[in-house]
Nucleic acid binder design. Sequence first.
RNA 1: CGGGGCGUGGCGCAGCCUGGUCAGCGCGCCUGUUUUGGGUACAGGAGGUCGUGGGUUCAAAUCCCGCCGCCCCGACCA
Length: 435
Amino acid sequence: MRLSRSFIPTMKETPAEAQIASHRLMLRAGLVRQTSAGIYAWLPLGYRVLRNIERIVREEQNAAGAQEVLMPTIQSAELWRESGRYDDYGKEMLRIRDRHERDMLYGPTNEEVITDLFRQSVYSYRELPQILFHIQWKFRDEVRPRFGVMRGREFLMKDAYSFDMDFAGAVVSYRTMMLAYMRTFQRMGLKAIPMEAESGPIGGDLSHEFIILAPTGESQVYYDAGFEDIDWVNAKFDYNAQDLEAFFRQMTSMYAATDEKHDVAKWDKVDPARRREGRGIEVGHIFHFGTKYTKAMNATVTAADGKHVHPEMGSYGVGVSRLVGAVIEASHDAAGIIWPDSIAPFKAAILNLRRGDAACDAMCEALYAKLGAAALYDDREERAGAKFADADLMGHPWQIIVGPRGAAAGNVELKRRATGERIELPPDAALARIA
RNA sequence: CGGGGCGUGGCGCAGCCUGGUCAGCGCGCCUGUUUUGGGUACAGGAGGUCGUGGGUUCAAAUCCCGCCGCCCCGACCA
């Protein structure tokens, strides 16, 4: 994309409403614009990041054997009356009435709809287990939206739902999602730590929240350094019951807790050299809640012995839009965002420091032709300083800097955003380095 | 939901208390010159129902009331 033709409105100054780093940077770098309290429009740069995060989440869900569906945003109140949550959910649920005076709602979550779909279509134990997921917009009418997309009212969420014949099966599904999550977050360049959690209004008895480390996180966390060392993406765990048990044992053998559930006695037993404290942001939450919904909504399957049983369920959420803000909280500096390669909107920016200079123009056009959609070409009539500042602000992993001095010598300068390291080299060598 | 604050060109703000050349400043934007490796400098220019409705007054951005919107602190949450 040519920056001169793009809709990427960057700002030098920060709108007054933005308090935290990620919100300020998302506004300044032109990723989003607020349309009303807790509701945002995603602009090209931000939308690219959102889709990249979504893509990784989707790939890992598929790899874990979950199947993607897409459920509606608008739901019927009837289903929620069946589960008993229509009255329980309170004002956070946005209630709507259609032209026939039917009570509808904008879905804050999808347990009812998925359970309804399941009971309509699945009748036999032979069809279990099933894990279904979708990535869809949710609405929760938060009393106090804040922190930009991190606590919006409308947000994009991946939610998955598992159905198993019994508790043992449900545990396997639960661990499957847990492993998928560790891989998902790692691929986004995040250190995520699962912590035991209260299961809250969804109900249930087994629950973990996934906290990523960021200096500006909302809650204080305590954890074993072991979590930092494990490479989950390449770990030799497969999605079978044995591997998952080993994985889960390893996961739960290390101490991890938010300040709410912090157990000083247990903490004292952790090797002091391995104790880590920090701030964290919740980006995912998984629950096992058994037959709460299958019983309330009478979803049954026939077991091998001919009896009708209520399947065991779990639900598994990832805050996709929240992750955009969370990644920035975890990865930025005074100059701007520092995108991890895997989710960056563009792999590289090409900075033409002297538009109109034949050598610079030719070199930039050649680079742009080769990189194509992976590059944002800054061909604006701006001063070098403005281009540097905007490139740093937008956080592209690489900057290919083309100036008259280097161009005359046949070189460009390659800058790594994360480290600030710059080297001068020929264009092809720069492309090879990036690829 | 309790407490606090704010709405003035695209962004950041001043002006309000003490109504009357107060509609202004910086950034951004447009034009020209200049500069050319970290947001250059100079000159000229465009752009505002002062959130909104009502009231007080000879006169309201300024005072009073209602409404709407947004933000912050706390409790709650992917």
